[in-house]
Design a protein around this nucleic acid. Structure first.
Lengths: 201, 201
DNA sequence: GACATATGTTGTCGCTGTCAACATGTGTCG
DNA sequence: CGACACATGTTGACAGCGACAACATATGTC
């Protein structure tokens, strides 16, 4: 017999929502559907998310956090094994690769992050998270500029370019319409090529 | 007294849909709402679009067509006034600028174009349009590569980069969350700066 | 003028998000 | 230990939605 309380409904709802989005897109997601999937009543999600928009905002926030950690992960990972003295430009190149790879491997989360209907209702906490992310990247970009990386452009414009280029390239690689026309054969190869265009070594 | 037939309902529905999306986003769009706005019954749109998805697919197709014409417009426009012998690289730079400017000035259409829930159901006609667009851009890119533009990358990867970078940069400039953190002061200035990063002169 | 077709209307269905009212479990303090 | 506050889940209701079927009216063609 099942207990009256689920025990971990909030996390379960988030996980299930991401799974549904992965399979059927944002349009295919409904609170009632994931509630039924988890065996709870249709109004149970309301105890954890005050609206569907709120659930998506939480997923966006979590995803942004996860992406931030992925991009700025410690240099001890395998990819940056060789050289502890990697300069800012090399690090930026690795960051670009990690971000694109993360988007490809987390299509659902990425699609939530870039969906205007989600970010449209961004609350203060979300904006703060975005500021943190931008701030960290900004520091790295300025360090790289000191080493000659894209010196000719203002630092603010460079931040826009870096975020935009990685985001757009990831979007093209995960978009159904575009990839039905331009299907790359080898993901890791194209990730490297594209990252090298964004952050030339 | 109003006539029984609207006379131009199909176009009116498209225009109204774009206006609603501009104001309230894709989430705020419903067939019943725009039908009511236009003073017709809730089922009238079904005579012109077999589903909501179909309406959005039409808007996507129209927008792609409009963007294509905007980007590949005749060289006789003011922007390219000076030099009829502009080479492929200069033309690409202008094209990048036009695409970003178009996205900023047509936020609703752009948001439909990049929405995965719309392109997910792309039909053959749409894929064909995308192939045309990609083909034209591909030719231009190869001509530019012959002149030394980003020679080191494969032409297919370059096409991905070009589309991705312009798309992403435009998305960042039109996204609510991002632009609440990074608000550029002068649109035309930032467009030029970003285009120059994507297609250096 | 008759008839086919295009276009718009009305009614209905199941699904959705949201809310209110209620039920049950959990933890805390006497 | 027991009473009570609170967190969490249920049931029922409502309006809005996309979609479909049946019907009504306008338009064009012979």
């Amino acid at each position: 017999m099942k207990s009256y309380h689920h025990g971990n409904l909030r996390e379960a709802l988030i996980d299930r929502a991401i799974a549904v989005i992965d399979q059927d897109g944002l349009e295919g997601l409904s609170l009632r559907r994931i509630a039924k999937d988890l065996g709870v009543s249709h109004a149970a999600p309301a105890r954890h998310f005050k609206s569907k928009t709120d659930l998506l905002a939480v997923i966006l926030r979590d995803s942004l956090q996860e992406l931030t950690e992925t991009i700025f992960q410690a240099h001890t990972d395998k990819e940056a094994h060789a050289d502890e003295t990697d300069n800012a430009i090399v690090q930026l190149n690795l960051m670009a690769r990690r971000s694109i790879r993360w988007a490809i491997q987390n299509k659902a989360k990425f699609s939530v992050m870039i969906n205007p209907d989600v970010s449209r209702f961004a609350d203060d906490a979300l904006i703060e998270s975005m500021k943190d992310f931008s701030g960290q990247l900004f520091s790295m970009l300025k360090a790289a500029q000191d080493l000659g990386f894209r010196e000719e452009i203002s630092d603010k414009a460079l931040l826009l370019y870096a975020i935009g280029a990685c985001r757009g390239v990831s979007a093209v690689l995960t978009d159904n319409l575009l990839s039905s026309v331009l299907r790359p054969e080898d993901d890791e190869k194209i990730i490297t090529d594209l990252a090298n265009q964004i952050v030339p070594l």
